[in-house]
Computed example of a mutant assay.
Amino acid sequence: MPEADVAAARRVRAHDVVLGVALAIGVVALGVGEGWHASPGVAAVGVVAAALVAPALARIDVAVRLLPNALTLPLLAIGAACAVIAGARGAWHGPVLAVVVALVLGVLWWTGGMGAGDLKLGAGLALAVAPLAWWLPLATLAAAVVLGGVAGLVARVRGAASVAFGPWLLAGAGVAVVLATG
Rank of each mutant, 00 (worst) to 15 (best):
L179N: 06
L119E: 08
L125G: 11
G26S: 08
L57G: 04
R13N: 11
P74C: 03
L141W: 13
G113R: 12
V107S: 06
A144N: 01
V47E: 01
I85W: 11
A86P: 14
T140N: 07
R13S: 12
H15V: 15
V177E: 02
L105I: 08
A160H: 15
P131N: 03
L67P: 15
I85K: 03
V154E: 03
V47D: 01
R158T: 03
A161V: 13
A164S: 11
W92I: 12
L132W: 01
V32A: 11
V175W: 11
L75I: 00
A44F: 08
A81E: 02
A14T: 13
V129W: 08
A116H: 05
G113N: 11
L30E: 04
A8S: 14
S162W: 14
P95Y: 00
L76M: 09
R10L: 14
A8M: 10
D16V: 06
V175Y: 11
A128R: 03
G159A: 01
V6Q: 12
L138R: 02
W110G: 02
G94S: 03
A81D: 03
V32F: 09
A38Q: 13
A70P: 12
G33Q: 10
P95F: 00
V145M: 13
W109G: 07
G115V: 01
L138I: 14
V146E: 04
A50R: 07
G115K: 04
V154Q: 09
L103H: 02
A88T: 08
A171I: 04
L76D: 05
A102S: 15
W92T: 09
A86Q: 07
A144P: 06
I25Y: 11
V84W: 11
V101R: 09
P131Y: 00
A56F: 09
G182Q: 13
A123W: 09
V47W: 02
P55Q: 01
V48I: 15
A58E: 10
R89M: 08
W110N: 02
G152L: 07
S162P: 10
R156F: 01
T111F: 09
V84D: 10
G166I: 02
A161T: 12
G31H: 05
V32D: 12
W36S: 02
V178S: 02
A7N: 13
V146R: 04
W168Q: 10
T181D: 00
I78F: 02
V154L: 12
T111C: 06
S39V: 11
L66P: 05
F165M: 14
A98H: 09
K120Y: 09
V99A: 15
V101M: 04
N69R: 12
A51N: 12
A43L: 02
W110T: 09
G182L: 15
A43N: 04
P167Y: 04
L138H: 05
L57F: 10
V178M: 06
R156V: 00
T111P: 05
A63F: 09
L23C: 14
A77Q: 07
A38Y: 06
A44C: 02
A128H: 04
I25A: 15
R13C: 04
T140G: 10
G115W: 07
A161G: 15
V12Q: 07
A164Q: 09
A126F: 07
L121W: 03
V17P: 01
I25K: 04
S39C: 00
G106H: 10
L127I: 03
A88L: 15
A51C: 09
F165S: 05
